[in-house]
Amino acid sequence: MNNQGKRVPEDIAPEVLELASRYYTHQNQGYSASELVAAGKEVDIPAEFIQQAILDVQAKHKQQLQQQQQLTHLRQKILIAATGVVAALSVWSAWTYNSIQNSNSKVQAAWAQVENQLQRRADLIPNLVNVTLSYAKQEKELVSLLVRSHEAYLQAATPDDKAAATVQVNQAIDRFRDYATINPQLRSSQLFTNLQYEITGTENRLAVERMRYNQAVQAYNQKIQTFPNFLVANTLGFEKKEFLKAINIDVPKIPG
Rank of each mutant, 00 (worst) to 15 (best):
A13E: 09
A53D: 09
Y24W: 10
E203C: 03
G84P: 03
N170G: 13
G201T: 12
M211T: 15
L244F: 14
S189W: 06
Q215S: 11
Y220D: 00
I125E: 06
V85F: 15
D178S: 14
N204A: 07
F227R: 05
F192S: 10
L79F: 11
E42C: 00
R177C: 02
R212F: 12
N102M: 09
T158Q: 06
Q119M: 02
Q119A: 02
L145K: 14
M1K: 12
K162Q: 13
A122T: 00
Q113L: 06
F227N: 07
A33Q: 09
R121L: 05
L146A: 11
N2M: 01
P46D: 10
T181E: 15
Q113E: 12
F230I: 02
V114Q: 06
V16Y: 10
P184Y: 01
M1E: 11
P228D: 01
P9K: 12
L124Y: 13
T202V: 14
L133K: 14
A172T: 05
I100N: 06
L186D: 05
N104D: 11
K106N: 14
A136P: 11
V43Y: 00
L186K: 05
I247V: 14
W111Q: 08
Q64D: 15
S144Y: 03
L74A: 12
Y24L: 13
L128E: 03
K106T: 13
S149N: 11
W95I: 07
D174S: 07
V217E: 02
G237Y: 08
V131E: 10
Q70I: 05
A112Y: 08
Q119H: 03
L65N: 10
L231Y: 09
A20Y: 01
E115R: 04
L74H: 13
A165D: 02
K241Y: 02
L142A: 03
Q119K: 06
E115W: 02
L128W: 05
P159R: 10
T200N: 07
Q76W: 08
H61W: 05
K137W: 00
V147L: 07
D250V: 09
S134Q: 14
N102P: 02
A136R: 12
S34E: 12
V217K: 03
V107T: 14
P46E: 10
K77T: 05
R75M: 08
H73L: 00
N183H: 14
A165Q: 00
K62H: 08
A219E: 13
Y31M: 12
S103P: 01
V169W: 03
I45D: 04
I182Y: 15
K6W: 07
Y31D: 10
S90A: 14
L128I: 06
P9V: 04
K6F: 12
A88F: 13
A165F: 00
Q108N: 08
H150Y: 13
V167E: 09
R120T: 10
H61S: 10
I224M: 00
L206W: 04
H73R: 06
A94V: 13
D123E: 09
G256F: 08
L142C: 02
S144I: 00
R121T: 04
G237V: 11
W92S: 09
R177N: 15
Y97I: 03
P255C: 12
V57L: 08
Q113F: 04
I80Y: 12
A164I: 05
Q108H: 08
S93M: 07
